[in-house]
C-alpha cells in the first residue's frame, strides 16, 4: 500500500471517528447505545457458564464433530496463540472462542451476518495450558468442540 492510500484511509478513519464524537457531544447517541451489543457481563465473567448465559441465555452445549479448531499443540508464547475455527454446518449465527484456563475465559465472539461463512481466525492470549473451546450457535442451538494447547510461557501477566 502506498503512502497516499494509507493517508486516505487514515483521513477517512478520523472523519468517521469525529462524526461519532459530534453525535455524542450533541447527545444524539448515548454511549450505551453505541456499545449496546457488546456484553460486559460475558466479556468480564470469571466463570464460563456465566459468560455463556450472559451471551446466549443458556449454558447448554452439545459436542459436535462438525467443528474444526486449528491451534498449535504447543504454544511457546502464550501472548500470541493463533486460533482458527471453522464448521461444516448450516445457519451458523455466531462463533465464540474461549480459553478455559484464562482468568476471563470468553475472548472473542463473531456474529455472522448475511452471507457469512463459518470460518474465523485470530490470535489470542493464554495465561497457561488448557483447552481452547469453540462455541457455535446454529439454528438457535449451541454446539461446542475443544482442543488442548500446552503453553510454555504464559501471556496474561507481566
Amino acid at each position: 500500500m502506498d503512502t497516499n492510500m494509507k493517508r486516505r484511509i487514515f483521513l477517512k478513519g478520523s472523519l468517521a471517528a469525529s462524526a461519532i464524537g459530534v453525535a455524542l457531544g450533541a447527545g444524539l447517541l448515548a454511549p450505551k447505545a453505541v456499545l449496546a451489543a457488546w456484553s460486559e457481563a460475558a466479556f468480564t465473567a470469571k466463570k464460563m457458564p456465566d459468560a455463556l448465559n450472559a451471551l446466549f441465555g443458556t449454558d447448554m452445549l452439545e459436542e459436535s464433530g462438525s467443528i474444526a479448531i486449528k491451534a498449535p499443540d504447543i504454544a511457546e508464547n502464550g501472548a500470541v496463540v493463533p486460533i482458527t475455527v471453522s464448521a461444516e454446518m448450516a445457519n451458523v449465527e455466531s462463533i465464540s472462542i474461549i480459553a478455559a484456563n484464562n482468568p476471563v475465559q470468553m475472548i472473542a465472539s463473531f456474529n455472522l451476518g448475511e452471507g457469512g461463512v463459518p470460518f474465523v481466525s485470530t490470535r489470542i492470549k493464554m495465561g497457561k495450558s488448557g483447552d481452547v473451546v469453540a462455541v457455535i450457535k446454529a439454528d438457535g442451538k449451541l454446539y461446542t468442540a475443544k482442543k488442548g494447547v500446552k503453553v510454555t510461557i504464559g501471556g496474561c501477566g507481566g
Partner: peptide, 11 residues
C-alpha cells in the same frame, strides 16, 4: 456481514 466482539484476551 460480520461483527466481532472482543476483550483484552485478543493478542
Amino acid at each position: 456481514v460480520m461483527t466481532a466482539y472482543w476483550n483484552g484476551g485478543v493478542s
